[in-house]
Design a protein around this nucleic acid. Structure first.
Lengths: 211, 211
DNA sequence: CGTTGTGAAATGATTCACAGCT
DNA sequence: AGCTGTGAATCATTTCACAACG
């Protein structure tokens, strides 16, 4: 069917926003929505919304709009969150613990199934129903359970090393909390959360008129 | 000097990456760096780096490159992190606690000076040297201490309400951890960290060839 | 020399505007 | 009548390529 599905990066970033809003509408029993309304609540134009959806199919009904439930299904399928992804958390410090206990993941298609750390005082304790295992077990457990995504919340000094081992274990995507640009082979995705950078963007916005 | 400094959004996002890398080079006693090398370590072209720097000044030396220390100063000044920003943390749950204790902020120009929460069991306890105060005190303390930035880590159900009160207290920038699009007046910046969305981007990258 | 700074060209994204469908 | 889907136009960003410079 699709030969080569190519989604522009800005569209890709908006996809999860559409999905979230559509789920709100679905919850509110809305049956259909038009591009202008959907765009307005998210801060985009109707044309933008239509162009975005057009990149992966045509399923709006002229004169009516888009079926909320159908659009949800389509977007989930494109994003791969129509199924549940197993996730490993590596690094059970403060951020790792907060993330491991984050209850919202499961609603969005992600399930933390293993937690690793190297601190002897933490290994063996239980965080969000998971016994914390030594990082050395990672390379055995990840292929065994066929885990594809990892959340990396280890100190920056060891982040690249652990990332290398995650990749070697078969991980195809890393959510990175270390303030460093991870080097990974083609085919492995990295998405970074960097608190300092986020604050810096704020400071910049506050300092400069408009960016 | 500068009449109207206009920095394109993509450039603004790269600025903090340049600064971080330049600080690494400074630490390594590098005196100067050229655009091609700097770009390579960050994954950009040399032309991109030069164009970026050109948006806020001209201070490279043909045949040599850019002075590492001078560039650091310039970027910090543009970003406003040549001074320290006082930050309030609102919501002392797991994420709020992790953030409050994050030691790296201070190195980058940010200092947590107040922590607020509404949970009676948490109020009065100490987190990272700060006594947790009731959220009601927020509107008094923020103007009093002239705090400009806030980290918002409250439950999504009250996020907009608390954000409104932050804005009313004089906050000009919010780092938002709630999975919601905050509505704020012009002149107030919002930067959002959304764990589920970050994971969804990863899932998408893993599902689709290239975004 | 080697590298910057920058117009000009190329690429990419958004908005416009409207024919065509329901 | 109302809204989609989409070419064409506009706007923004990146890359190219090279004159000017230390």
């Amino acid at each position: 069917m699709d030969e080569r599905l190519r989604i522009p990066k800005p569209t890709a970033r908006r996809l999860s926003l559409y999905l979230r809003e559509l789920e709100v509408l679905h919850e509110a029993k809305l049956k259909s929505i038009n591009s202008t309304q959907l765009g307005k609540t998210l801060g985009f134009t109707g044309a933008q919304v239509r162009k975005d959806f057009a990149t992966f199919g045509t399923f709006g009904r002229p004169g009516v709009g888009y079926s909320v439930s159908h659009l949800c299904e389509q977007i989930r399928q494109i994003m791969g969150t129509d199924q549940t992804w197993d996730v490993a958390v590596v690094g059970a410090g403060k951020i790792g613990q907060a993330i491991s206990a984050y209850p919202k993941f499961i609603d969005r298609g992600f399930k933390v199934v293993a937690v690793f750390d190297n601190n002897p005082e933490i290994i063996g304790t239980t965080i969000a129903n998971h016994k914390v295992r030594p990082v050395a077990d990672m390379t055995r457990i990840i292929p065994l359970r066929n885990i594809q995504l990892a959340i990396l919340s280890v100190p920056v000094t060891v982040a690249q090393d652990v990332a290398d081992r995650l990749v070697a274990s078969g991980i195809t995507g890393i959510l990175n909390f270390a303030p460093i640009r991870l080097r990974v082979p083609d085919g492995v995705g990295v998405s970074s959360v960097d608190f300092s950078r986020s604050l810096e963007q704020l400071a910049l916005e506050t300092s400069i008129d408009f960016c």
